[in-house]
């Protein structure tokens, strides 16, 4: 008899949380953490023809900011994966409407800059 009353995933009294986490990775809900999972993901991604273009022109510049406070925050509400690719500079140059996500990014950069000034 399965039960989920505050005890996670169980079947016949055996916890299945480890299997659920493993299955989440295998399904792509989390990032692969095992060699076999990586190989499967590589196959899936190749089959899907997913673009692997770099998002950064000069990667080493990232190291210049490595000691700054960086945040990884969710964007809300949920957005589609294909909608937003403009960066801040482009938005500023073009002077068009700025999306909520870009605004959020601007706010985060400003917060980080102010935090730096405060150091």
């Amino acid at each position: 008899m399965a039960t989920n009353k505050k005890k996670g995933m169980k079947l016949e009294g055996i916890s299945l949380d480890r299997e659920v986490l493993q299955a989440m990775r295998a399904e792509g809900w989390l990032v692969p953490e095992a060699v076999q999972e990586v190989l499967e993901a590589e196959r899936t991604l190749a089959d899907a023809g997913i673009s692997r273009n770099s998002s950064v022109e000069r990667p080493r510049d990232l190291l210049r900011t490595a000691n700054k406070v960086r945040s990884i925050r969710p964007s809300h509400p949920v957005t589609s994966s294909s909608g937003i690719s403009d960066n801040l500079a482009r938005a500023a140059r073009e002077g068009g409407e700025i999306s909520s996500e870009v605004e959020e990014r601007m706010r985060r950069d400003r917060d980080a800059a102010e935090a730096d000034k405060g150091d």
Partner: peptide, 24 residues
């Protein structure tokens, strides 16, 4: 970075885009 960014971007997008968005 150049060798692995594309892979990591793809698997992170697949896993986390709905909660983090593109920029996240």
């Amino acid at each position: 970075y150049a060798r692995h960014e594309g892979y990591l971007l793809a698997v992170c997008n697949r896993a986390f885009n709905s909660s983090l968005g593109d920029l996240g």
